[in-house]
């Protein structure tokens, strides 16, 4: 047996200066840079679409107001009506474009949690590459932390930028978008501060599923399914996050404008009933109505309560992920 004895050499660990990514961060960057670039471009495109739609909303609103549809004009009535309808339609289209963007943006955290957290962890465990990683000079805990930190930080920044821009477009600009479309709606979860925490929660969910399942396809599917369950659950608990208000509205009186009416029914002989109890022939048109509702002023606090819940969920999932990681090395 010949021995290829090599001369003594100095060790040459990676240099530790400069801002370039090092250690596990370098590996994470190398493995996810293409995906992170696509995600960044996606968020940038969403932001550009939002700004464009908001600009369209401004322009069409000014045009609608310029038509003075509710005032006298020397134009023939048919022309006024047509112009007003078209201008109003353009305003609505611009507003609904923003709403649609928010609804679509809600799907992104689940997808990103599946692709950027569940998939890479599951594939490393499925193909035994965790043994390669954990037999280097970094601990599994440090590897996992740094492996997750870079994409999580980038997603946090991107989701925060988009959600703040959405909130600006919906609540903070003049003219503002019609808030009735947003308040207490599912799409409101795409607003800051809920959306960044929703993104982190979905990412942590993906990490836990990836560590638990060790199967790529299953991890992707389960993460998406659980994210759907999360969104559904949030929609179910949303009415109870802040106390409901109750009031009685007389027949013909206007109902609260911009508020979220959660439930209502007729008041008959001083008692609350549901509308299904009204006689088919006469109905309850002449009876006052009871209303359970959230006033518009509760919209902001409700978003913060949702954010707190998601922060707690994220912390729980992160703790679960570290616990699972520990179990994998025992």
């Amino acid at each position: 047996m010949s021995s290829a004895v090599l001369a003594t050499r100095e060790t040459s660990a990676a240099p530790r200066s400069g801002l370039r990514p090092r250690g596990v961060t370098w590996l994470t960057w190398r493995q996810t840079r293409a995906a992170l670039l696509v995600v960044t471009l996606g968020y940038a495109a969403a932001l550009a679409y939002l700004l464009y739609q908001h600009h369209q909303f401004d322009v069409t609103t000014v045009r609608l107001r310029g038509l003075h549809c509710s005032t006298d004009t020397r134009d023939p009535v048919s022309v006024i009506t047509a112009n007003c309808n078209l201008a109003a339609l353009a305003v609505m289209q611009a507003a609904s474009g923003v709403h649609r963007l928010a609804t679509v943006a809600l799907a992104a955290p689940g997808l990103l949690g599946a692709v950027l957290a569940a998939q890479p962890l599951a594939v490393d465990l499925e193909r035994g590459r965790h043994r390669l990683l954990w037999s280097q000079s970094v601990s599994p805990r440090r590897w996992f932390t740094q492996r997750m930190l870079l994409p999580a930080a980038i997603l946090l920044v991107l989701s925060a930028v988009l959600s703040v821009a959405l909130r600006w477009a919906v609540l903070w600009t003049h003219p503002a978008l019609p808030i009735e479309d947003w308040s207490f709606d599912n799409a409101s979860d795409a607003l800051a501060p809920v959306y960044p925490l929703l993104t982190l929660a979905a990412f942590a969910l993906g990490a836990v599923v990836g560590l638990l399942l060790h199967r790529v396809i299953a991890a992707l599917g389960i993460t998406l399914a659980l994210y759907g369950v999360l969104l559904y659950g949030m929609a179910q608990v949303r009415p109870y996050l802040v106390p409901l208000h109750r009031k009685v509205v007389g027949p013909g009186d206007p109902w609260p404008s911009g508020d979220w009416v959660y439930d209502s029914g007729p008041v008959v002989h001083g008692k609350d009933f549901s509308y299904s109890a009204c006689p088919v022939a006469t109905g309850c048109d002449k009876e006052p109505s009871w209303i359970l509702y959230h006033p518009l002023s509760q919209f902001g606090p409700m978003l913060w309560v949702e954010t707190g819940m998601l922060a707690a969920l994220t912390a729980g999932l992160v703790a679960l992920a570290y616990r699972r990681l520990l179990a994998l090395t025992r």
Binding site: R9, T11, S12, A13, G23, L27
Partner: peptide
């Protein structure tokens, strides 16, 4: 080459020449 860099990044006693 990147796999060797992986080793260099994750190991302080790395011997690139070897």
């Amino acid at each position: 080459a990147e796999t060797l860099r992986f080793g260099r990044e994750l190991n302080p006693r790395w011997d690139q020449e070897l």
